[in-house]
């Protein structure tokens, strides 16, 4: 049974998450402060941590940083307001995903499933398969319904980066930096154009993307189209 650690100071949210997650088959431990959260994380080595950014004793950002010094499993951030700066900051410092309160339970469970799944997908499998889409990393070929689709080098690099981080929100600046280099940070138009090109090639309907999902003002997330 997968174990999830919830770090949130609001008792109502902790109760809600405990009931929701337990009824979905997860084992849940919850803590109200950053310090207790860090201790429990070290003792239990949970499979996933849900971390609230507004904690009473220290900021969620600092808890996240301390966790990421040794903790490699997914961390899902809960944030109370749509504060993109906070969200981007936490994603850039190693959070896998975020949810804004109030969130729908279905959404929360989907994010958890996706984060846990991508974590089990080994880094060096040569074959990545999502529904009709198959990427052969060794042969550098991409097929959709067994038909080969051609990509430019940059398009391919972007697709691989997204697909390898399935379920994880990758921020605009992270993607720009990884694919184009530091000089391109902030040049969102490049990214938008390339994402549109990728969607045209891999999505059934580029206007209704099923693989590359936009996280407005934050970045993109690759989903398996479950």
């Amino acid at each position: 049974m997968k174990e999830i650690l919830v770090i949130d100071d609001e008792i109502q949210i902790r109760r809600l998450l405990e009931i929701t997650l337990q009824s979905s088959g997860y084992k849940v431990i919850s803590q109200a402060t950053g310090l207790q959260g860090l201790e429990t994380a070290a003792n239990h080595q949970p499979d996933l941590i849900i971390l609230d950014l507004g904690l009473p004793d220290e900021s969620g950002h600092s808890v996240l940083e301390k966790l990421r010094e040794w903790y490699i499993n997914p961390i899902l951030i809960l944030s109370v307001q749509k504060n993109e700066k906070d969200i981007i900051r936490s994603l850039d410092r190693g959070a896998n995903d975020y949810l804004v309160k109030p969130f729908r339970t279905g959404e929360l469970l989907a994010r958890i499933r996706s984060a846990l799944r991508s974590n089990t997908q080994a880094e060096n499998t040569p074959l990545i398969q999502f529904k009709e889409l198959q990427i052969d990393l060794a042969a550098r070929t991409v097929t959709i319904n067994k038909e080969t689709v051609r990509f430019t080098a940059t398009q391919y690099a972007l697709l691989i980066l997204l697909a390898r981080n399935e379920g994880k929100v990758l921020t605009y600046d992270y993607l720009l930096k990884e694919i184009w280099g530091d000089a391109y940070i902030g040049q969102l138009e490049y990214l938008r154009v390339y994402i549109a090109q990728l969607r045209n090639k891999i999505e059934k309907d580029a206007n209704h993307p099923a693989y590359i999902i936009t996280e407005p003002k934050v970045g993109y997330r690759f989903v398996s189209g479950e």
């Binding site: 938008r192 580029a206 206007n207």
Partner: peptide
């Protein structure tokens, strides 16, 4: 107002 390049089709879909 924090402007950035936006894909309108994507916005409509969201």
């Amino acid at each position: 107002v924090k402007k950035d390049w936006c894909d309108i089709s994507e916005l409509i879909y969201t």
